[in-house]
Amino acid sequence: MQKFTIKLWSAAAGTVAATAMATQAVAAGAPQEPADPAEFVYPTGFGKALSLMLAGEGGENGIGVHKVWPTLSFPALTTEQIDQAVTGNSLVIPYHYAHQYSDDGKVGGYNIRYDQVELSKCPTTEIPNDGYLLYEGVCSAQVKEPVTGTWEAKDNKLCVDIAWAGKTQIEDCVTVFFVMDSVAFVKDDGTVSGKAHSLKKGAAPDM
């Protein structure tokens, strides 16, 4: 069993404080924690937490947060919770990829590749969803590469084998956490895997 923690330290100067945040994935075994991840209870119930996340409520009521100060603890999702959360939905990193998890254990969606094109193709003012990105004087076009693969929730982890561009790109089993309005993946060595994901209802929209 694992838990994901965020520690907050505050240094007040008058009425204003500067807050720093650090993250740490902690292996199970602490005597004060339940031995079974299923014993963790979300403040509003897991079903409510999931519905808020899919509705874009931004972590209202603190999705997955235990009332502990100055450390906020986020329980790892169980096998059943992972299955409930991702089946028929999409895990997305905006402007990077959208992976769609079907109820038959298949993964679809797309990865976004950026190819350099003529500078004249990029407008001087950014236009959302136009398929172009101007960054440091370089114009790039978004190219969507179809994603194929499989997924399975087992042993309180999400296991995926995902390929695009003709080769396997992600093959791993990770522990899953709801951290407010984001989804965090944690590897077996305790490190956070890549960026935070968003959980979207159904097939992910174009980005």
Rank of each mutant, 00 (worst) to 15 (best):
Thr87Gly: 05
Gly88Tyr: 11
Ser90Cys: 04
Leu91Ala: 02
Leu91Asp: 10
Val92Ala: 02
Val92Phe: 04
Val92Trp: 01
Ile93Gln: 14
Pro94Thr: 02
Pro94Tyr: 01
Tyr95Arg: 14
Tyr95His: 10
His96Met: 09
His96Phe: 06
Tyr97Pro: 12
Tyr97Leu: 15
Ala98Phe: 05
His99Glu: 13
His99Met: 08
His99Val: 04
His99Ile: 12
Gln100Ser: 08
Gln100Arg: 02
Asp103Cys: 10
Asp104Arg: 12
Asp104Ser: 09
Asp104Gln: 02
Asp104Met: 04
Asp104Cys: 07
Asp104Trp: 05
Gly105Tyr: 06
Gly105Asn: 11
Lys106Thr: 15
Lys106Ser: 09
Lys106Asp: 08
Val107Pro: 15
Gly108Tyr: 04
Gly108Thr: 09
Gly109Met: 04
Tyr110Glu: 12
Asn111Lys: 11
Ile112Phe: 04
Ile112Ala: 11
Ile112Gly: 06
Arg113Pro: 06
Tyr114Pro: 00
Tyr114Glu: 08
Asp115Phe: 14
Asp115Cys: 12
Gln116Val: 15
Gln116Lys: 13
Val117Thr: 00
Glu118Cys: 01
Glu118Asp: 10
Glu118Pro: 11
Ser120Lys: 14
Lys121Trp: 07
Cys122Val: 02
Pro123Gly: 06
Pro123Asn: 03
Thr124Pro: 04
Thr125Lys: 13
Thr125Gln: 13
Glu126Thr: 11
Glu126Gly: 12
Pro128Met: 00
Asn129Pro: 03
Asp130Pro: 00
Asp130Thr: 00
Asp130Val: 00
Gly131Pro: 02
Gly131Met: 00
Tyr132Val: 05
Tyr132Gly: 06
Tyr132Met: 07
Leu133Lys: 08
Tyr135Trp: 12
Tyr135Val: 14
Glu136Leu: 04
Glu136Cys: 02
Glu136Val: 02
Gly137Lys: 06
Gly137Ile: 01
Val138Gly: 01
Cys139Ser: 08
Ser140His: 07
Ala141Met: 05
Gln142His: 07
Gln142Leu: 03
Lys144Val: 03
Lys144Pro: 07
Glu145His: 07
Pro146Cys: 05
Pro146Trp: 01
Val147Leu: 08
Val147Tyr: 01
Val147Asp: 06
Thr148Cys: 11
Thr148Ile: 15
Thr148Gln: 14
Gly149His: 07
Gly149Arg: 11
Trp151Met: 09
Trp151Asn: 03
Trp151Ile: 08
Trp151Val: 09
Ala153Thr: 01
Ala153Val: 13
Lys154Trp: 02
Lys154Arg: 12
Asp155Cys: 11
Asn156Tyr: 03
Leu158Tyr: 09
Leu158Gln: 14
Cys159Tyr: 06
Cys159Lys: 04
Cys159Met: 11
Ile162Cys: 11
Ile162Arg: 00
Ile162Gly: 01
Ala163Gly: 06
Ala163Glu: 15
Trp164Gln: 09
Trp164Asn: 15
Ala165Thr: 07
Ala165Cys: 09
Gly166Arg: 05
Lys167His: 13
Gln169Thr: 05
Gln169Phe: 15
Gln169Ile: 13
Ile170Asp: 15
Ile170His: 15
Ile170Leu: 12
Glu171Pro: 09
Asp172Thr: 08
Asp172Pro: 05
Cys173Trp: 03
Cys173Glu: 06
Cys173His: 03
Val174Ala: 07
Phe177His: 04
Phe177Arg: 10
Phe178Asp: 07
Val179Phe: 08
Val179Gln: 15
Asp181Ala: 03
Ser182Asp: 14
Ser182Asn: 14
Val183Arg: 06
Val183Thr: 06
Val183Gln: 07
Val183Lys: 04
Phe185Lys: 09
Asp188Lys: 03
